[in-house]
Design a protein around this nucleic acid. Structure first.
Length: 245
DNA sequence: GCGACAG
DNA sequence: ATCTTGTCGC
């Protein structure tokens, strides 16, 4: 488990964060299909928080896309770098997620984020942001529709409907289990919407959420408890000042 | 102006 | 996100 510092110059205000989004948004690539599902690596990333102790833990879990077996995993902990502000989630998650990705012993392949990409008030969600910073193909699979609207897809798994903001299609509501609430898929970087949905279906043979996010979710919670639960004071101080042991 | 709002 | 036990059902 690696320990992360908040990067120098990290946005301190909402306005600064929005300015960063405006700048990075120009670099999103939307005209590539992305890697085909079922081959190579697919990596899930997720983050857990202890606001009380100002500690955040991130996990990256690499799956073999064909078997969905985990082939590698890594975690990172640090201090919380930004408050939760709808639309600015990336600034809260990204430093620690980047550290976890860096600690992986192999290439991540496609990265699946717990949240949105294009489906974002400013069209630059967590998946878009992470994609631009790493250059990796990314998609966002969220549990809620945020501020967007959609018609309920048909009952069978695989059915989908457009996720919209007015006339603009920003993603899809995709049913991954028969008659169960859909997930909300949007493109991040270097992946088409069709392909993002195909990957999402390939990653949901048994549960509503992709295996990638399920695995990353449980791993980052475990990492948070290890960093926090055992020795609260030491964990908080260590996270605050990585130069101490 | 007020409330809602990914995680 | 997080606070949280058992419980109903396939």
């Amino acid at each position: 488990m690696t320990t992360v510092r908040i990067p120098a110059g990290w946005p301190a205000t909402e306005d600064e964060a929005r300015a960063v989004q405006d700048e990075l948004r120009e670099r999103v690539v939307l005209d590539e299909p992305g890697p085909p599902p079922g081959a190579g690596h697919v990596t899930g990333v997720d983050v857990a928080y202890d606001d009380e102790r100002d500690v955040v833990a991130a996990a990256a879990v690499v799956l073999d896309a064909a078997t969905l077996e985990a082939v590698a995993e890594a975690t990172a902990v640090g201090r919380i770098s930004f408050p939760y502000v709808p639309g600015l989630l990336a600034f809260r998650e990204i430093p620690t997620v980047l550290a976890a990705l860096d600690a992986l012993p192999c290439p991540p392949g496609l990265v699946v984020c717990d949240g949105y990409g294009l489906a974002h008030p400013r069209r630059f969600g967590l998946a878009s942001h992470l994609g631009v910073l790493t250059g990796l193909p990314t998609i966002g699979v969220a549990k809620n529709p945020f501020t967007f609207t959609y018609d309920d897809p048909d009952a069978p798994r695989g059915s989908c409907t457009p996720l919209t903001a007015g006339d603009e299609v920003v993603g899809r509501a995709l049913r991954t289990r028969d008659s169960v609430k859909p997930v909300f898929v949007s493109v991040g970087h270097r992946v088409s919407l069709d392909n993002a949905c195909a990957h999402t279906l390939a990653l949901t043979p048994a549960y509503r959420l992709p295996e990638t996010t399920r695995r990353a979710d449980s791993l980052c919670r475990r990492a948070l408890k290890e960093a926090t639960g055992r020795s609260p004071e030491l964990a908080a101080r260590t996270a605050a000042d990585p130069t101490r042991s």
